[in-house]
């Protein structure tokens, strides 16, 4: 039984906003419009994090996903040669639907099977989350230091991968080296 409280109203309005924009990502024909709705989805998820009193995570979500990943996707869309505003017809329509159904089933199964930490917004209100960022910092540099260092190596690999994508052919590099020597 869902009780009618302010927190629930806020939660359901934010989550419905997120869900509607997430569905629009798939339904809209134009790639850019679906990117726009994807950004709205990210913002909605940030709102959900705020509702869980995780303000640092919400801001990180806003900064990394809505601010950076969206730019990455945007340039990725601009890299595509034959994209137009009309992307309605795709040969991956049926497999896409199939994968979507499988993932939806998996998500629902996960949510129903596992026992999550059952703290809703009302209970979180009683806990005093004063300074989440400081406690995250203490955990990150204390208990989870290995993960913290490994993250930097992961980011390094991503950077090297990006360089090798752009400089895919070695000859290009050699030519530029030769030009440099001539100068």
């Amino acid at each position: 039984m869902i009780e009618f409280s302010t927190y629930n109203v806020i939660f359901f309005s934010i989550s419905s906003f997120t869900l509607i924009s997430a569905i629009s990502v798939g339904l809209v024909n134009s790639l850019m419009r679906s990117l726009f709705f994807l950004i709205l989805t990210f913002i909605g998820v940030a709102g959900l994090f705020i509702l869980l009193s995780a303000d640092f995570i919400a801001i990180a979500q806003l900064l990394i996903y809505a601010g950076s990943i969206s730019i990455l996707l945007l340039f990725a869309v601009m890299l595509t040669p034959e994209s137009s505003t009309n992307n309605g017809n795709s040969k991956y329509f049926l497999p896409g639907i199939l994968i979507g159904i499988i993932f939806t089933y998996l998500m629902v199964a996960l949510v129903t099977i596992f026992q999550f930490n059952q703290l809703s917004g009302i209970h979180l209100k009683k806990l005093d989350f004063d300074n989440t960022i400081a406690s995250i910092g203490e955990l990150l540099l204390g208990k989870y230091i290995i993960a913290f260092e490994l993250a930097s190596i992961l980011l390094l690999f991503a950077l090297i991968g990006a360089i090798s994508i752009v400089r895919s052919n070695e000859s290009d590099f050699l030519i530029s080296l030769n030009n440099k020597d001539k100068k």
Binding site: L35, F36, I39, F56, I59, A60, L62, L63, A66, G67, S68, S70, I71, L74, I133
Partner: peptide, 12 residues
């Protein structure tokens, strides 16, 4: 961080 995150939304 809030100001930084919010103003980064200008780019898209």
């Amino acid at each position: 961080l809030y100001i930084f995150a919010v103003s980064s939304l200008t780019v898209p």
